[in-house]
């Protein structure tokens, strides 16, 4: 292609000028419609008869500032728990998914266990798993019982591991049989084929839905507070009970969204990259 010495034709110049005008026009339309909708929303909310009361009980800046340290301390627990639980659930999901692909009669009990696990924990509500583990298990009064926080984390790992296992399995099954044939024809064993050919492609393909589940996990991490530990939502609840004002909840909500933004951005980026790769780009 000649780029340097190309002189655009009359027709191309007219097309370019038309497209420029269209762009300016589109920007103007977008700006004015956004402004109109925004104004309408502000007027509707602030003009509502109960607005003053809602503003005082949900958006009090002074109470927000006072509640912030406690909520932040709680959020730190959420973050730590999220990192541990996400790592644990991803690992568990991957192991379960691989176990479900094993063939041969020796592995029947392993396959059956893995299948039973995914059926059970995808069907069981997280809250029930949490109560069973954090209230039921310590009731056994066994020696060396881990703290409630660990048991609560375990409930999250078990529940999300079930979902993630199915995502991994979908990825494994999406790798075309011809890839397995090629690997086996080279003399690779089943395990080597899995490790070097199938899993790398499967994980890359399902990275977006996996990360999406991690974003969901981030919100459910707070449920361990039902068993006692003070996370961001629980800290907000305590602050609310002390002030008779709901602002701390709003503070916690805003912090959760801020925490999710980087994770969601990474998810979008990974999705975009894998979409581009599948369409033949670099």
């Amino acid at each position: 292609m000649t780029v340097l010495d190309h002189i655009p034709s009359e027709a191309q110049l007219r097309r370019a000028a038309y497209r420029r005008r269209q762009t300016v026009y589109s920007v103007l339309v977008a700006a004015s419609s956004t402004a109109a909708l925004g104004t309408l929303l502000v007027v509707a909310v602030t003009g509502a008869p109960g607005w003053e009361r809602v503003r005082r009980s949900f958006l009090d800046p002074e109470i927000a500032w006072d509640a912030l340290p406690a909520v932040l301390a709680g959020l730190w627990l959420n973050v730590r728990l999220l990192v541990c639980c996400a790592a644990g659930a991803l690992l568990l999901g991957l192991v379960i998914a691989v176990l479900r692909t094993l063939r041969g009669p020796i592995f029947f009990p392993v396959r059956a266990l893995a299948a039973g696990y995914t059926y059970t924990f995808r069907g069981l509500p997280l809250i029930i798993v949490l109560y069973l583990l954090t209230l039921g298990v310590p009731g056994l009064r066994l020696q060396g019982m881990p703290p409630v926080l660990v048991l609560g984390g375990l409930a999250l790992v078990l529940t999300y591991g079930g979902y993630l296992a199915e995502v991994f399995r979908a990825g494994i099954e999406s790798v075309h049989p011809s890839q397995l044939a090629a690997a086996r024809s080279l003399g690779l064993t089943y395990r080597q084929t899995m490790r070097h050919v199938v899993l790398p492609q499967a994980v890359r393909r399902v990275a977006p839905p996996l990360l999406n589940d991690v974003v969901a996990l981030q919100k459910d991490v707070g449920l361990v507070s039902l068993a006692g530990p003070i996370d961001a939502v629980r800290a907000a609840q305590i602050a609310t009970a002390q002030t008779f004002n709901y602002t701390p909840y709003v503070v916690a909500g805003v912090l959760f969204v801020l925490l999710a933004i980087p994770l969601i951005a990474v998810t979008d980026w990974v999705t975009l990259r894998s979409a581009r790769r599948q369409s033949g780009g670099s």
Partner: peptide, 18 residues
Amino acid sequence: ADRVRRRIGMVFQAYNLF
């Protein structure tokens, strides 16, 4: 079978590169 396949090279219609 894995030992046998090491002695046989196979090329497919659709290339099947990784």
